[in-house]
Design a protein around this nucleic acid. Sequence first.
DNA 1: CATCCTTTATTAGGTTGGTTACGAAAGTCA
DNA 2: TGACTTTCGTAACCAACCTAATAAAGGATG
Lengths: 413, 413
Amino acid sequence: MATSPIWASRPKTRGRVLDLIRAARTITRIELAEATGLTGATISEVVRELMGDGLVVEAGRGAPTGGKPRTLVQLNPLARYSVGVQLERNTCVIVVVDLAGRQVARTSFHGVAQMPPQQALPLVAAQVDALLTTAAVDRDKVLGVGLVSYGPQDRRAGVLLTPQPTDAWLDYPVARRLAESLGLPVLLDNDAAAATIGEYWLGAVDPRSTYGCIYMASGIGGGVVVAGELYRGSSSNSVEIGHISIDVNGEQCPCGNVGCLENYAGPSALVRQALATPGLAQRLALNPTDADFLSEFARIGAAANAGDPAARGLLEQSARYLGFAAVTMASLFDVDAIVLAGPSFAVAGSIYQAVIQQEVDRRTFARRAHRVRVVPSVNGSDAAAIGGAVLVLQSELTLGHPRQEDARPVPAS
Amino acid sequence: MATSPIWASRPKTRGRVLDLIRAARTITRIELAEATGLTGATISEVVRELMGDGLVVEAGRGAPTGGKPRTLVQLNPLARYSVGVQLERNTCVIVVVDLAGRQVARTSFHGVAQMPPQQALPLVAAQVDALLTTAAVDRDKVLGVGLVSYGPQDRRAGVLLTPQPTDAWLDYPVARRLAESLGLPVLLDNDAAAATIGEYWLGAVDPRSTYGCIYMASGIGGGVVVAGELYRGSSSNSVEIGHISIDVNGEQCPCGNVGCLENYAGPSALVRQALATPGLAQRLALNPTDADFLSEFARIGAAANAGDPAARGLLEQSARYLGFAAVTMASLFDVDAIVLAGPSFAVAGSIYQAVIQQEVDRRTFARRAHRVRVVPSVNGSDAAAIGGAVLVLQSELTLGHPRQEDARPVPAS
DNA sequence: CATCCTTTATTAGGTTGGTTACGAAAGTCA
DNA sequence: TGACTTTCGTAACCAACCTAATAAAGGATG
């Protein structure tokens, strides 16, 4: 890479300072000293180093305080870029984001997940290349690619642990192959986990808070952030909220559990329920054989927004089920807030938010200690893809990776 | 205190090394260097400092390796002590443990929780004093007291957040008052959280693993340990597994939620079910008006062990319900193991363990990544009290408390 | 059994990432 | 204008590690 070696020294402190600057958008050295507990002298030097790398620039004066005014510093968003690639059941979304996590380019296409990975990944790589070219992003400034997908996975190996979307993807080295095709580091992670950290990075919640995220696309996933980092657990397959049981007398799920949330509140369940509701299927022109049930789900959400009582009833019931999961999440993880992210919250997010907040207020065990707020996504439908890109930014910049090897991206070639 | 100032320098590293020595029982300097990633030189000096404080002693030679034999070091268990006080609904358990976490004295008594705290706490303090005296423990070597209780609490303030056991306990400064009475630092924490860290300290699981604990006494609680530390969440009221819903159509619980695990699988629920089972109540001489339902529960467990089919059926059903909670815990926290601790597992623990393991094997979502083992407690009925004492040891010795103030015990007077 | 080799433990000195102390710069206030 | 306040950089120092050399305690070997 042509860019200077970023982590010449004290990676941890530099990462912390950079993260604070990012979270605050503009901040002064004095405030950085207060936030980190370091002295002004150290902050001065760290900021100088960050400015030397071009990651940070000065941005005018702060409010007058009676003495020398504080100089503001802020991120130089154009200094680095990162790519997020989301593989969903039917679609693939690719985004390019700048250092601040803001989207600078986006594309999406269908069909790729049905192909075997040998065919799909070069296609994805070509799309990434094209996107970087049309967005005129200097490739030397691209830190890497965050590849996100659903289901259990082995993050270190960069491999999926279930035969989804098709059998051919099981155990295929997706991260390594994409890295080879692109000549960029690739980091594999769970879509919900990515969305969770993406919401943090772009300011959905107070950066100091412990919060959870419920991510709903085709399925339902989740994530939790503690002290600015994802809760990982033993193998990074944590917060699998779509397959917790909300009904011990419920139906068997292919995952092995019974009464899984996803089969009550997920988009496919809602479409199923809508098809079984007299009149609703005809009114919304739902297609009982459509494999891409997300578009059917979107129509139900739109009808609910427009005032269709049956559609609204179904959605509110789904929200109540999600409310139970949110309460479980709050009771187990003791979070300050729960973010609702992902495409399936995009259509009728306000209905979901209101109902889930109500359930959480009524049912959360630790509500005596503090309220749990339910907040909407800031990243909308592309939360997972943006989150994938953010994971790379965080891994390369703010975590100052003297962590385990598992957090490192697969290096290119 | 007459003991030397323990944390003269590098508290973090000293804490880490001390924790490794504790976990290994005996270990060599070379192994410590490998485990910490530090060099032999640094380990040498840290170990010398620990020996200077009397916390660690050399203990013979290791196996010959062809060169100079490694010298073994181990904890000096008699160097420090710690007290654990558990306030349950009906009983109070007090234990004194040594530096290795082994119990050196124990007492228990009834009735104290029914008194107002103004009356109860001096009584507890007197019992602690008596126990230390009879066990001939040098008071200068007592690091502090871990006070554990159930329900939501404000750890920093040392205050309970629910009117339990009686209204008088709500918001009463229990930690501060006990500290004043005893002249020792007091740390307040949740019983289940304490039990969880106690199992870790005494070796129930691999110290490197991420694991959860289900603690069952009168109620059901839980804890999770990541990288040797309790998962705390936002306000330390985490892993409240007794009040997660396992049935969205279940009955209302006073906590606000419906279908709470505790009302299906907890001891009081089991006694209720037993009373409703024809013949069983008479056979076991259960008393429908007994407020101390734990003794009734123990009789059901004993009958199940002895082969009574009705009792065994009830217990297995309870275990299956707990299995659902264990699966939820595993799916959300992605743990390697789940420990079953507390008095209510003491009677028929093997039945519980077998059934819960079976459920976890069948139903855990991430089982493709790794199996989740269900393991019995090493601390038995007194897990919470021992855990309370261990919390003090950990806070004072191995965490090297440059953490937030909330982790510090309330200092004496 | 004296010598050599291997491995462990300690000592000496260097590097890193912080600290405190102080002074220069850049404003406000009287 | 001059006194005062506050910010920011420099210099000197310190804690916690590191590397390299050395001492100590065995086993293997001629």
